[in-house]
Amino acid sequence: MSTLVVRRAPITRVLRSELRMVLRRPRTLIGLGLLALVPVLMGIGIAIATANGEEGGAEGLAALVIGNGMLLPIFALSIAMAMLLPLTGAMLAADALAGESAHGTLRGMLMAPVGRGRLLAVKAFGVASVTLIAVLLMALTGIISGVLLLGGDGMLTASGTSLPFLDALGRVLITALYVTLQVWALAAVALAVSAFTEHPLIVVVVSLGLVIVSGVLAAIPALDWLDPVLVTTSWDAVSEVVRDPIEWGPLVEGGLRALCYLVIGGSIAYSRMLTRDG
């Protein structure tokens, strides 16, 4: 009996199964559907406002998106970055560990056995993939509804230059990747919280609490020194994407900041997974 050796199910099989499961979860599907609708609704709203001649009053990207369809996905993503996408990431992370723990399915995976570290990796993969899918879906519906509803070939940048369609597509892709990375950072923290509890709602509340508290702290001038460590600090940097040439500095800094949060969230989640009772 001591001749037993370590055996594991092929990781790709487990990852595929995880992805299939997450994408079958009704909550995931509803969330994806609603997110996909956001750019469409924004496009319709802007189109109606433009038709009524209400051009004034808009600031920043909102002023630029009129008649500038390729900007719609970027505008929509930057708006969703404020709350909807973090909420999505937090929900996915909440379901991944806390929710499955409540259902007893996490125990089933541990008994299969899927090693604890691997299980965390599999769960993180599920969260990360669906986040990416959500963002890409928004980008796609944004491009389609932008081009159809707002028109414009190529993209008018904030710097006043016009980009051809393919370059504009590249900008949308950069936005999508940047936004995804930022949501991953928050989801990593949410996953760490998720590893500590059996109540998904706690995870969502704590994660969104973190976003809101970060926003409040960032708004207090006396606490400006805190800004570099806040998870939300680099979320605004999305707007750099619409400048020409792109100013990479803030984007790279935001990316590194997100990576730091991924390391923090990931290591705490892993640490808790090692000792968590199944």
């Binding site: 570099p228 460590v229 590194l256 730091c260 991924l262 390391v263 640490s271 808790r272």
Partner: peptide, 26 residues
């Protein structure tokens, strides 16, 4: 042992992450 590993991982990861955050800013 496992508990010690877990604590080490959490402490090291958090320290590295926070150090990174501070470094980015300076």
């Amino acid at each position: 042992d496992r508990k010690r590993t877990a604590l080490t991982v959490a402490a090291a990861g958090t320290a590295a992450g926070v150090a990174g955050l501070v470094l980015i800013a300076s």
